[in-house]
Amino acid sequence: MLKKEEQELQIDQEKLERDRNLHIREMKRLVHESASRFKDGVILHHRYLLLHLIGKGGFSEVHKVFDMQEMRFAACKIHQLHKDWKEDKKANYIKHSIREYEIHKKLENSRVVKFYDVFEVDDNTFCTVLEYVDGHDLDFILKQQKCLSEREAKSVITQTMRALKYLNEIKPPIIHYDLKPGNILLGSEDSGWDIKLTDFGLSKVVEKESPDGMELTSQGAGTYWYLPPECFVISNEPPMISSKVDVWSVGVIFYQCLFGRKPFGNEQSQASILHENTILKATEVIFPEKRPVSKEAKDFIRRCLTYRKEDRPDILTLSLDPYLKSPKK
């Protein structure tokens, strides 16, 4: 009886913790919304009516808007350059943003967030308008639930792989390079978690296909828990990368969905991962014993997290993996 009561208390405690996190998140959102110079009811570019703030990043805010021309909801990302920035820093930020939307606007796939528009507000502010997804990102879901069932996690990964397959089949192919739970948007649970990829700020366009891949010119960028060992190799020549970078990220995300923790550097900071060469030492993936997960799922993760990039499958090969195929009815 005591054990049963203890389990019930544990469930109640977890629910209260989730409610507390939601409350804190909403309080932060309201503080950012009240401090923003873009208030609800403002109309941008003579067509986008601001409804409410969705979230705030380093130098940008994302608002839910209503497009009065197309008669649809959209997400408006407002980029604000700091007035005290030097001109070269402003130019670099704008160049980076232009490159992102040049890549994004050409993408047309049901598993990729649609790019609608870009416009200037003033000398230090410009906006990109994207498809509005009514739901949360995978990072939010994992913080609330800690982990997913294998069936749910497999559905998320299968849909993510369809998006990545599309990115690798178009000409020229694209490496996402910043694949992580925060960049996987999930439609509302009522729609069965319809996923869409977003944020192409670090994406690489493979202009010249070669067996060795392409040079990594932005070493040090990205989210370290989700990047493979080859991105951390220091030498005189830049590392060579391919779509196998995204394959490694898929393995890390799937592991996190199933076990509620990252396979490498889970409790570490980005600086600590870099300082201790955590990912360069990630030669073997270890699975927690308590969580019941199929052998097939673990084997799939091992294939994704193959240490040597030469032995790791690329995206197109992984998309044909037997584990991802639906069982016959």
Rank of each mutant, 00 (worst) to 15 (best):
L2W: 14
Q7H: 13
K15P: 05
H23V: 09
R25Y: 13
E26R: 14
D40W: 00
V42K: 14
H45P: 01
L53V: 05
G57N: 10
H63N: 06
R72S: 08
C76G: 04
Q80Y: 08
H82G: 06
N92E: 11
Y101Q: 07
I103S: 04
I103Y: 02
S110Y: 08
R111M: 04
R111V: 02
F115M: 07
F115Q: 01
N124D: 15
G135V: 00
D137V: 04
F140P: 00
K143M: 10
K143Q: 12
Q145R: 14
Q145K: 13
L148Y: 09
E150M: 03
V156H: 01
P172R: 00
P172K: 00
S191T: 15
W193D: 04
L197F: 01
D199Q: 06
E207R: 14
G220V: 07
T223I: 14
W225Q: 13
F232Q: 00
V233G: 05
S243V: 09
D246P: 06
V247Q: 00
V247A: 02
W248L: 01
V250S: 01
V250T: 07
Q256I: 06
H275I: 08
H275C: 12
H275R: 15
K281N: 12
T283R: 15
F287N: 04
E289I: 08
P292E: 15
V293R: 01
S294L: 11
K295Q: 13
E296F: 10
F300T: 03
R303D: 12
R303E: 13
L305S: 01
T317V: 15
T317R: 12
L320F: 08
